[in-house]
Design a protein around this nucleic acid. Sequence first.
DNA 1: CCTAAATGTCTATTGATCTAGACAAGTATA
DNA 2: TATACTTGTCTAGATCAATAGACATTTAGG
Lengths: 245, 245
Amino acid sequence: MAARKTIERQTGVALWRQIADRVRLAISNGDYDATGMVPPETALAREFGVNRHTVRSALAALAEEGLVRAVQGRGTLIERKDRVTYPISRRTRFSAGLGRQVKEIGSQLLAHREVQASGEVAAALALPPGAAVVELQSVSSGDGRPLSATIAYFPAGRFPEMAQLYARLGSITKAFAAQGLDDYVRVSTEIVARHADAEELKLLKLSAGAIVIEALSVNADVEGRPVEYSRTRFAADRMKFRIET
Amino acid sequence: MAARKTIERQTGVALWRQIADRVRLAISNGDYDATGMVPPETALAREFGVNRHTVRSALAALAEEGLVRAVQGRGTLIERKDRVTYPISRRTRFSAGLGRQVKEIGSQLLAHREVQASGEVAAALALPPGAAVVELQSVSSGDGRPLSATIAYFPAGRFPEMAQLYARLGSITKAFAAQGLDDYVRVSTEIVARHADAEELKLLKLSAGAIVIEALSVNADVEGRPVEYSRTRFAADRMKFRIET
DNA sequence: CCTAAATGTCTATTGATCTAGACAAGTATA
DNA sequence: TATACTTGTCTAGATCAATAGACATTTAGG
């Protein structure tokens, strides 16, 4: 551990935040599994070449996230170290994919309305521009931690009861089934990584400077007709993605 | 644009950096395509609720990246607005996928050596632990901009000349072909997004606080025998990914 | 019980970040 | 050419981030 880990100064990102990110990654990589604790503050300070107070700020941020817990006299204990793996395949389903990894999956419908499809939405759903679509905003969480925030669009003509059914059943797959669609497949997924904006920080309960992965995806029925277009923002530091081709 | 875009204060990420990130995203989304210019500094300052000097710091950072160019009296011109789309499918090939999007693809071999496979590498390549593997470190760029930094592992027994061939041919696919492997497919890809560390900032010529997408992937021949395990770090704000399932 | 090691708290100082205002200088257009 | 609009530059002050050092408090172990 004598090797001094490099961090960058004067770049608009505070040192304590850079250190927090590095320690979070080390935790999820299992680097501290031997002890179940983060190295002592003085050791981290030496390692990163900063003052101990700066390390303390970083650890305070991680404690705020519930990732670690400092105990005076003992050290800083790791409370949680998991990244949830999210599989992406032709049969991508949110709940099924997360199934065994989290004990309890929560889905909260934040808002729903019927709107005219924008050009982007209409193109993705293969509808004429301005066609009626159901818009659904929701947040999903695993074991109480928000994992993703989604805005999804469905053709209103075909799935008029989408919002009510999703609110009641808590699952898109079940809501589709209740409307006569038994099977659907993922047609395309586009992924971008970027910093979270203020709304996403709030929805996903992230500490600022956090990263979100934004996925634009289209699902279609077995005949290839699009049934859903969605924009999902994942809390990047709580997830990894496995792409099965 | 009267709507005030929310940014977060006191979070370890300087306001100018948050604004730079938002403007970069807006540019790549084509939000300013009508004029080919970023809105005036005073307008951005109003929009984000900050002082004009803070906006100037953000634009200076984007100018440093070569993304915009300020012209006194006129405004701030957009120099480049592209995100390269990187397709991920069973037939993912770096060069072929980028083909039409960039004029010139560069591949630079940074280092190569023969090492004993670590547990992780051996498992991915289905080799006994400690088996000899060829390790290749390279950086790829499109039109002069670094796009990805890769560490790749190949079974040394089967592909002893990998490093030399890649150095000469500039392509993994061609190096495989020269060693008698005509076809291979992507078996799995795992993706994580995180902040870049100092080495990645340097290799990919990123400004600090930048995001990298790390992809762990395995390629196999048509019989399903793994031929390559690689860890590629992409410059996230220069790329988007399309997953074809 | 003592000591070493760890986190907790406090004060003081320096440099970076952000705000505020004023004015200069270049560009486009009527 | 006059004017409005834009970027460029300067000064000054307030707040945040980071360093430095000292000492208190808690825990674990010999």
